[in-house]
């Protein structure tokens, strides 16, 4: 799956849950959302992204370790 597409979606989820101020809890929430709604190959493709990818938001980087 197209990594750009997935990065964009993950970032978007993180942004929309940004009201949660605590970064840990927020990363948990984003990870939870992704696990609830994403098909496994999407998660795999996201996990395949280099955590240093410049487009990944810091929150999503934290999410990667939780999926």
């Amino acid at each position: 799956m197209n990594a750009e597409y997935l990065i964009k979606m993950a970032n978007q989820i993180a942004l929309n849950l940004a009201y949660e101020q605590d970064p840990e809890r927020r990363a948990d929430m984003v990870a939870g959302h992704i696990r609830k709604f994403w098909e496994p190959r999407m998660i795999e493709a996201l996990l395949a992204v280099d955590p240093a990818h410049p487009d990944l938001s810091p929150c999503v980087v934290a999410v990667l370790t939780r999926l």
Binding site: M1, Y5, F37, E39, P40, M42
Partner: peptide, 13 residues
């Protein structure tokens, strides 16, 4: 036991 693809995800896939 895992979610499937949503319509836009199907197109991407």
């Amino acid at each position: 036991d895992q979610p499937g693809l949503r319509i836009p995800n199907m197109f991407e896939a």
